[in-house]
Simulated assay, not measured.
Amino acid sequence: MVNRVSPKPSRKKSARKSQRLQAQGVNWLWRLLSGRRLKTLWWLAGLSSRVLYAISRRERHVTRRNVEVAYPEDSAERRRERVRESLRHSAATMLELGFAWIGAPEKIEASIVNVHGRELLDDARAENRGVIVLAPHFGNWEVLNFWLSSHFPFTAMYEPPKMIELDPIIRHGRERMGAELVPTNPRGVAALLKALKRAEAVGILPDQEPGWGSGAFADFFGRPAYTATLLPKLVARTQARVVTGVARRVPDGKGFEIHFLAADERVYDTDEAISAAGVNACVESAVALDPAQYQWEYKRWKKTPEEQQKTPGYRERRLYTRR
Protein backbone atom coordinates (compact mmCIF):
# COMPACT_ATOMS: atom_id res chain seq x y z
CA MET A 1 0.00 0.00 0.00
CA VAL A 2 1.42 3.36 -1.00
CA ASN A 3 1.40 6.07 1.65
CA ARG A 4 0.36 9.33 0.13
CA VAL A 5 1.65 12.52 1.63
CA SER A 6 -0.78 15.40 1.60
CA PRO A 7 0.58 18.25 -0.46
CA LYS A 8 1.73 21.29 1.45
CA PRO A 9 -0.46 24.37 1.01
CA SER A 10 0.91 26.79 -1.52
CA ARG A 11 2.54 30.01 -0.44
CA LYS A 12 -0.36 31.92 -1.97
CA LYS A 13 -2.91 30.03 0.14
CA SER A 14 -0.80 30.53 3.26
CA ALA A 15 -0.55 34.25 2.52
CA ARG A 16 -4.33 34.49 2.05
CA LYS A 17 -4.92 32.64 5.33
CA SER A 18 -2.49 34.91 7.13
CA GLN A 19 -4.21 37.97 5.66
CA ARG A 20 -7.63 36.70 6.74
CA LEU A 21 -6.35 36.19 10.28
CA GLN A 22 -4.84 39.68 10.31
CA ALA A 23 -8.11 41.16 9.05
CA GLN A 24 -10.06 39.31 11.75
CA GLY A 25 -7.65 40.67 14.36
CA VAL A 26 -7.99 44.24 13.07
CA ASN A 27 -11.79 43.91 12.92
CA TRP A 28 -11.86 42.58 16.49
CA LEU A 29 -9.68 45.49 17.66
CA TRP A 30 -11.88 48.09 15.93
CA ARG A 31 -15.00 46.63 17.51
CA LEU A 32 -13.32 46.47 20.92
CA LEU A 33 -12.28 50.13 20.72
CA SER A 34 -15.48 51.43 19.09
CA GLY A 35 -17.22 51.90 22.44
CA ARG A 36 -14.28 53.39 24.32
CA ARG A 37 -14.18 57.03 25.34
CA LEU A 38 -12.00 59.35 23.27
CA LYS A 39 -10.01 60.20 26.38
CA THR A 40 -9.14 56.51 26.74
CA LEU A 41 -8.13 56.26 23.08
CA TRP A 42 -5.94 59.35 23.42
CA TRP A 43 -4.22 57.80 26.44
CA LEU A 44 -3.67 54.56 24.51
CA ALA A 45 -2.28 56.59 21.60
CA GLY A 46 0.32 58.02 23.97
CA LEU A 47 1.46 54.54 24.96
CA SER A 48 1.48 53.09 21.44
CA SER A 49 3.27 56.11 19.96
CA ARG A 50 6.16 55.63 22.39
CA VAL A 51 6.52 52.06 21.17
CA LEU A 52 6.21 53.23 17.56
CA TYR A 53 8.91 55.85 18.08
CA ALA A 54 11.23 53.28 19.60
CA ILE A 55 10.86 50.41 17.13
CA SER A 56 9.54 51.83 13.85
CA ARG A 57 12.51 53.34 12.09
CA ARG A 58 10.53 53.96 8.91
CA GLU A 59 7.79 56.15 10.48
CA ARG A 60 10.27 57.96 12.70
CA HIS A 61 12.65 58.64 9.82
CA VAL A 62 10.02 59.81 7.31
CA THR A 63 8.34 62.04 9.88
CA ARG A 64 11.66 63.60 10.88
CA ARG A 65 12.64 64.28 7.26
CA ASN A 66 9.26 65.86 6.54
CA VAL A 67 9.34 68.19 9.53
CA GLU A 68 12.90 69.14 8.63
CA VAL A 69 11.59 70.37 5.27
CA ALA A 70 8.49 72.07 6.68
CA TYR A 71 10.16 73.67 9.72
CA PRO A 72 13.86 74.14 8.91
CA GLU A 73 14.26 76.72 11.69
CA ASP A 74 13.48 74.15 14.41
CA SER A 75 16.09 73.13 16.94
CA ALA A 76 16.96 69.44 17.16
CA GLU A 77 14.94 69.14 20.38
CA ARG A 78 11.86 70.82 18.87
CA ARG A 79 12.14 68.53 15.86
CA ARG A 80 12.10 65.46 18.12
CA GLU A 81 9.04 66.87 19.89
CA ARG A 82 7.26 67.34 16.56
CA VAL A 83 8.01 63.76 15.56
CA ARG A 84 6.66 62.39 18.85
CA GLU A 85 3.55 64.61 18.67
CA SER A 86 2.85 63.57 15.09
CA LEU A 87 3.23 59.87 15.86
CA ARG A 88 0.81 60.19 18.77
CA HIS A 89 -1.84 61.87 16.63
CA SER A 90 -1.37 59.27 13.88
CA ALA A 91 -1.75 56.51 16.46
CA ALA A 92 -4.88 58.22 17.78
CA THR A 93 -6.38 58.30 14.27
CA MET A 94 -5.81 54.56 13.87
CA LEU A 95 -7.30 53.81 17.29
CA GLU A 96 -10.32 56.01 16.53
CA LEU A 97 -11.27 54.17 13.33
CA GLY A 98 -13.59 51.80 15.18
CA PHE A 99 -15.20 54.81 16.89
CA ALA A 100 -15.76 56.56 13.53
CA TRP A 101 -16.90 53.52 11.54
CA ILE A 102 -18.70 51.35 14.09
CA GLY A 103 -19.51 53.59 17.06
CA ALA A 104 -23.05 54.79 17.74
CA PRO A 105 -23.85 57.73 15.41
CA GLU A 106 -25.27 59.82 18.25
CA LYS A 107 -22.03 59.37 20.18
CA ILE A 108 -19.92 60.50 17.22
CA GLU A 109 -22.19 63.50 16.61
CA ALA A 110 -21.89 64.45 20.29
CA SER A 111 -18.08 64.30 20.05
CA ILE A 112 -18.13 67.14 17.49
CA VAL A 113 -18.11 70.10 19.85
CA ASN A 114 -18.01 72.88 17.24
CA VAL A 115 -18.28 73.50 13.50
CA HIS A 116 -16.48 76.52 12.05
CA GLY A 117 -17.18 77.88 8.57
CA ARG A 118 -20.29 75.88 7.74
CA GLU A 119 -21.65 78.97 5.97
CA LEU A 120 -19.13 78.37 3.17
CA LEU A 121 -21.01 75.19 2.26
CA ASP A 122 -24.47 76.60 2.90
CA ASP A 123 -23.84 79.72 0.79
CA ALA A 124 -22.58 77.68 -2.15
CA ARG A 125 -25.63 75.41 -2.10
CA ALA A 126 -27.91 78.43 -1.78
CA GLU A 127 -26.37 79.64 -5.05
CA ASN A 128 -27.08 76.17 -6.54
CA ARG A 129 -23.34 75.45 -6.76
CA GLY A 130 -21.61 72.25 -5.79
CA VAL A 131 -18.89 72.19 -3.14
CA ILE A 132 -15.52 70.47 -3.46
CA VAL A 133 -14.14 69.74 -0.01
CA LEU A 134 -10.36 69.38 0.07
CA ALA A 135 -9.81 67.01 3.00
CA PRO A 136 -6.10 66.62 3.83
CA HIS A 137 -4.77 63.91 6.13
CA PHE A 138 -5.20 66.01 9.24
CA GLY A 139 -6.83 65.18 12.57
CA ASN A 140 -9.45 62.50 12.01
CA TRP A 141 -10.69 62.71 8.42
CA GLU A 142 -13.13 59.83 9.06
CA VAL A 143 -14.99 62.02 11.55
CA LEU A 144 -15.09 64.73 8.87
CA ASN A 145 -16.59 62.18 6.44
CA PHE A 146 -19.17 61.25 9.09
CA TRP A 147 -20.23 64.87 9.59
CA LEU A 148 -20.35 65.74 5.89
CA SER A 149 -22.40 62.69 4.95
CA SER A 150 -24.73 63.33 7.89
CA HIS A 151 -25.54 66.89 6.82
CA PHE A 152 -25.15 67.03 3.01
CA PRO A 153 -25.51 64.77 -0.02
CA PHE A 154 -21.87 63.70 -0.17
CA THR A 155 -19.76 61.74 -2.68
CA ALA A 156 -16.14 60.68 -2.28
CA MET A 157 -13.65 58.53 -4.15
CA TYR A 158 -12.73 55.23 -2.55
CA GLU A 159 -10.02 52.69 -3.23
CA PRO A 160 -10.45 49.29 -1.51
CA PRO A 161 -7.74 48.44 1.04
CA LYS A 162 -4.94 46.02 0.26
CA MET A 163 -6.35 43.77 2.99
CA ILE A 164 -9.52 43.14 0.98
CA GLU A 165 -11.28 41.35 3.85
CA LEU A 166 -11.59 44.73 5.59
CA ASP A 167 -13.37 46.31 2.62
CA PRO A 168 -16.96 45.60 3.78
CA ILE A 169 -16.26 47.11 7.21
CA ILE A 170 -14.60 50.25 5.86
CA ARG A 171 -17.16 50.71 3.12
CA HIS A 172 -20.08 50.32 5.54
CA GLY A 173 -18.45 52.70 8.02
CA ARG A 174 -18.04 55.41 5.40
CA GLU A 175 -21.41 54.92 3.72
CA ARG A 176 -23.67 54.38 6.74
CA MET A 177 -24.64 58.08 7.07
CA GLY A 178 -25.47 58.37 3.36
CA ALA A 179 -22.14 58.99 1.63
CA GLU A 180 -21.75 57.60 -1.87
CA LEU A 181 -18.35 56.03 -2.55
CA VAL A 182 -17.13 55.93 -6.15
CA PRO A 183 -14.03 54.27 -7.66
CA THR A 184 -10.77 56.09 -8.31
CA ASN A 185 -11.08 55.89 -12.09
CA PRO A 186 -12.83 57.80 -14.93
CA ARG A 187 -16.19 56.35 -13.87
CA GLY A 188 -15.64 57.81 -10.41
CA VAL A 189 -14.68 61.20 -11.84
CA ALA A 190 -17.89 61.18 -13.90
CA ALA A 191 -19.85 60.50 -10.68
CA LEU A 192 -18.16 63.47 -8.98
CA LEU A 193 -19.09 65.72 -11.89
CA LYS A 194 -22.73 64.62 -11.73
CA ALA A 195 -22.86 65.23 -7.97
CA LEU A 196 -21.41 68.73 -8.36
CA LYS A 197 -23.90 69.57 -11.10
CA ARG A 198 -26.64 68.58 -8.63
CA ALA A 199 -25.16 71.18 -6.23
CA GLU A 200 -23.96 68.49 -3.84
CA ALA A 201 -20.67 68.13 -1.92
CA VAL A 202 -17.77 65.93 -2.97
CA GLY A 203 -14.56 65.10 -1.14
CA ILE A 204 -11.03 65.04 -2.55
CA LEU A 205 -7.77 64.07 -0.83
CA PRO A 206 -5.46 66.94 -1.87
CA ASP A 207 -2.23 65.57 -0.39
CA GLN A 208 -2.07 62.09 -1.90
CA GLU A 209 0.68 61.77 -4.49
CA PRO A 210 -0.82 60.81 -7.88
CA GLY A 211 0.75 58.62 -10.54
CA TRP A 212 2.93 60.19 -13.22
CA GLY A 213 0.83 62.07 -15.74
CA SER A 214 -1.96 62.94 -13.30
CA GLY A 215 -0.32 65.83 -11.49
CA ALA A 216 1.92 68.86 -11.53
CA PHE A 217 4.74 70.04 -9.30
CA ALA A 218 3.92 72.90 -6.94
CA ASP A 219 5.59 74.11 -3.77
CA PHE A 220 4.43 72.60 -0.49
CA PHE A 221 6.21 74.16 2.48
CA GLY A 222 8.78 75.53 0.03
CA ARG A 223 9.65 72.24 -1.68
CA PRO A 224 8.12 70.98 -4.98
CA ALA A 225 5.53 68.27 -4.36
CA TYR A 226 3.81 66.30 -7.11
CA THR A 227 0.16 67.29 -6.71
CA ALA A 228 -3.00 65.89 -8.32
CA THR A 229 -4.63 68.06 -10.99
CA LEU A 230 -8.17 66.67 -10.83
CA LEU A 231 -9.44 69.82 -9.10
CA PRO A 232 -9.18 72.35 -11.97
CA LYS A 233 -10.91 69.86 -14.27
CA LEU A 234 -13.86 69.58 -11.88
CA VAL A 235 -14.05 73.34 -11.31
CA ALA A 236 -13.90 74.16 -15.02
CA ARG A 237 -16.85 71.90 -15.80
CA THR A 238 -19.07 72.71 -12.81
CA GLN A 239 -18.16 76.16 -11.40
CA ALA A 240 -18.12 74.55 -7.96
CA ARG A 241 -17.00 76.32 -4.80
CA VAL A 242 -13.84 74.92 -3.15
CA VAL A 243 -13.28 74.75 0.61
CA THR A 244 -10.78 72.98 2.85
CA GLY A 245 -12.27 70.76 5.54
CA VAL A 246 -10.70 69.08 8.58
CA ALA A 247 -11.78 67.50 11.87
CA ARG A 248 -9.31 68.86 14.41
CA ARG A 249 -8.78 66.80 17.55
CA VAL A 250 -9.51 68.80 20.73
CA PRO A 251 -6.77 68.37 23.39
CA ASP A 252 -6.96 65.50 25.88
CA GLY A 253 -9.56 63.48 23.98
CA LYS A 254 -12.37 65.99 24.51
CA GLY A 255 -13.76 65.60 20.99
CA PHE A 256 -13.38 67.27 17.61
CA GLU A 257 -13.89 70.62 15.98
CA ILE A 258 -14.82 70.74 12.30
CA HIS A 259 -13.15 73.56 10.37
CA PHE A 260 -14.09 74.70 6.87
CA LEU A 261 -11.65 77.21 5.38
CA ALA A 262 -12.06 79.33 2.25
CA ALA A 263 -9.78 78.05 -0.49
CA ASP A 264 -6.79 79.90 -1.89
CA GLU A 265 -8.06 81.70 -5.00
CA ARG A 266 -5.43 80.00 -7.17
CA VAL A 267 -7.40 76.73 -7.01
CA TYR A 268 -9.82 78.24 -9.55
CA ASP A 269 -7.10 78.90 -12.13
CA THR A 270 -7.31 76.88 -15.34
CA ASP A 271 -3.53 76.47 -15.37
CA GLU A 272 -2.93 73.14 -13.63
CA ALA A 273 0.39 74.16 -12.04
CA ILE A 274 -1.14 77.34 -10.59
CA SER A 275 -4.18 75.43 -9.34
CA ALA A 276 -1.89 72.84 -7.73
CA ALA A 277 -0.05 75.64 -5.92
CA GLY A 278 -3.40 76.83 -4.60
CA VAL A 279 -4.26 73.32 -3.43
CA ASN A 280 -1.01 73.03 -1.50
CA ALA A 281 -1.58 76.47 0.03
CA CYS A 282 -4.97 75.19 1.23
CA VAL A 283 -3.32 72.21 2.90
CA GLU A 284 -0.74 74.49 4.54
CA SER A 285 -3.56 76.63 5.97
CA ALA A 286 -5.15 73.53 7.47
CA VAL A 287 -1.84 72.32 8.90
CA ALA A 288 -1.39 75.73 10.57
CA LEU A 289 -4.41 74.96 12.80
CA ASP A 290 -2.26 72.41 14.64
CA PRO A 291 0.87 71.11 12.83
CA ALA A 292 1.09 68.03 15.07
CA GLN A 293 -2.21 66.71 13.68
CA TYR A 294 -0.98 66.51 10.09
CA GLN A 295 0.08 63.03 8.96
CA TRP A 296 3.78 63.71 8.48
CA GLU A 297 4.40 59.94 8.13
CA TYR A 298 3.40 60.12 4.46
CA LYS A 299 6.16 60.59 1.84
CA ARG A 300 4.74 63.79 0.38
CA TRP A 301 7.96 64.68 -1.46
CA LYS A 302 8.77 61.23 -2.85
CA LYS A 303 8.56 62.27 -6.51
CA THR A 304 10.85 65.07 -7.68
CA PRO A 305 11.11 67.31 -10.76
CA GLU A 306 14.59 65.87 -11.37
CA GLU A 307 13.16 62.35 -11.46
CA GLN A 308 10.49 63.43 -13.95
CA GLN A 309 13.14 64.86 -16.27
CA LYS A 310 15.84 62.26 -15.69
CA THR A 311 17.99 60.94 -18.51
CA PRO A 312 19.48 57.45 -18.87
CA GLY A 313 22.11 56.85 -16.21
CA TYR A 314 20.72 59.59 -13.95
CA ARG A 315 20.93 58.85 -10.21
CA GLU A 316 19.26 60.96 -7.57
CA ARG A 317 19.72 61.28 -3.82
CA ARG A 318 16.18 61.02 -2.53
CA LEU A 319 14.82 62.94 0.43
CA TYR A 320 13.86 59.79 2.32
CA THR A 321 17.09 57.85 1.76
CA ARG A 322 18.59 56.98 5.12
CA ARG A 323 21.98 58.46 5.70
Rank of each mutant, 00 (worst) to 15 (best):
G222C: 04
A91G: 05
A225N: 01
R176F: 12
K302I: 14
R16V: 03
A273E: 13
S56R: 12
R315L: 13
P7G: 09
A292Q: 03
R237F: 07
R322P: 08
F256A: 14
K13L: 14
S275R: 04
L29K: 10
R237E: 13
T304K: 09
V182C: 05
S149T: 06
K299D: 07
L319W: 01
P210F: 09
E68T: 11
Q24P: 08
V131L: 08
E106V: 12
R60E: 10
D269S: 07
V182Q: 01
I55D: 11
A15N: 15
E85M: 05
D269Q: 02
F152P: 00
L231G: 10
R82G: 09
A23E: 14
W101H: 07
I112R: 01
Q208I: 05
Q208P: 03
A54P: 01
L234W: 02
L134D: 04
P251N: 14
K299H: 13
E200M: 01
V113M: 11
T63H: 00
F217N: 02
R176T: 07
E127H: 11
K254A: 15
V69I: 15
E265K: 07
G25S: 04
L196R: 02
V26G: 09
F154I: 02
H116N: 13
P168L: 15
P183R: 01
F138Y: 12
A263H: 02
E257P: 00
R129P: 10
H172K: 09
H172P: 08
I170H: 15
L33H: 10
Q208L: 09
L144C: 14
V51P: 00
G188F: 04
S75Y: 03
V287W: 00
R88A: 15
K8A: 15
G98P: 02
L144F: 13
A199F: 05
T155D: 11
K17C: 13
T311M: 14
P160E: 01
K197N: 15
E316I: 14
E73R: 15
E307M: 08
L38R: 00
R64Q: 06
S150N: 15
G188L: 12
R4P: 10
A263Q: 06
P153T: 00
V279G: 03
H61R: 06
K197A: 14
G253P: 00
